[in-house]
């Protein structure tokens, strides 16, 4: 059964005012349990608005959202448990840190869930290890940390709730390449360890291509497609028309194909591409 399902989900900002804008337009989609999916779309395509519906932060103007078959907004009291089920990490999550110590800040979510002390402690230690926060950092004030570390603390704060679905909005934005790699690596690690559903919003096609198995494309408030990575990047011409670029390496291989060097399709990671190239060169006996 799909863990997230939407039916004609529509959201309109500022209805009835001159600033009216349809942010999400009749979106129908089903996300299966255990999927690791990327969400892409240009700025203002409705990605962020869409994901805020999945944990009941925004109320659909029309249409409905189902989490584990339960329709949101039928019973407002059920929204809080839903938020523990669907963890959402906002963009620049380090701006939400507030506690005296890193430990306490990560504990905020689990504490709100009403877990007992031992369980909270276990979860914090586990997530701290997963995101690579050492014991000495745990007792520091979150405001003393570097940007990358703050980001990890904030993400750990949501991960410690062990949500069935983890949604992250641009978790690596504003970090240097090494920081990006680490953050994305730990998200991948989390997915592997828990087998939970993870949705990753990102602008970087490279990041998406390297990590996820399915891609959801939003275009002009509408769902363009939700499909396996290879199939989505297959439609590179359409993607480019809506201002989204396929990964650079895919473009390189597209051009090579156009020049008469067909090396197969579905090249969207550098690793895979370089392997293909080496193979080919090896076969021909590169001089």
């Amino acid at each position: 059964m799909a863990v997230i399902k939407t039916e004609d989900l529509t959201y309109v900002y500022g209805d009835g005012t001159p600033f009216r804008k349809v942010a999400v337009d009749h979106v129908n989609l089903e996300i299966e349990k255990g999927d690791f999916a990327g969400i892409i779309g240009h700025t203002g395509s409705g990605k962020s608005t869409l994901i805020q519906h999945f944990n009941g932060l925004l109320r659909p103007t029309s249409g409905s959202v189902y989490i584990d078959g339960e329709r949101l907004w039928d019973n407002k009291a059920r929204l809080r448990p839903i938020r523990f089920k669907v963890g959402l990490v906002f963009q620049y999550p380090e701006y939400q840190l507030f506690e005296e110590t890193v430990y306490k800040d990560i504990a905020f979510g689990p504490k709100n869930m009403g877990l007992d002390e031992d369980e909270i402690d276990r979860r914090i230690k586990e997530t701290a290890k997963l995101v690579g926060l050492s014991d000495s950092v745990m007792q520091k004030s979150p405001f003393e940390l570097s940007g990358g570390q703050k980001r990890r603390v904030a993400i750990a704060g949501v991960m410690a709730m062990e949500p069935e679905v983890l949604i992250l909005d641009e978790p690596a934005s504003g970090l240097d390449p090494k920081g990006r790699e680490q953050i994305l690596g730990m998200i991948k690690e989390y997915h592997k360890a828990k087998g939970n559903t993870v949705l990753l919003v990102s602008h970087s096609m490279e990041d998406i291509a390297r990590n996820v198995s399915k891609i959801l494309v939003m275009n002009d408030s509408k769902l363009f497609c939700y499909d396996e990575t290879a199939k989505v990047f297959h439609r590179s011409a359409e993607l480019e028309k809506m201002g989204l670029a396929v990964p650079q390496v895919t473009r390189v291989f597209d051009r090579l194909k156009a020049m008469g060097f067909d090396m197969g399709e579905d090249v969207y990671t550098v690793k895979f591409g370089s392997g293909l190239l080496l193979d080919r060169l090896g076969k021909k006996g590169a001089k």
Binding site: Q52, L57, R80, L88, V89, F90, Q96, L97, F108, V158
Partner: peptide, 28 residues
Amino acid sequence: SAQKARGADMETGSLMQKAKAMIPILIP
């Protein structure tokens, strides 16, 4: 929104609890 996503409850509870619930918003 971010604190609500972490389960912060700002609507229910006594006045004192509501005041306490403002801390995670006011400090950031």
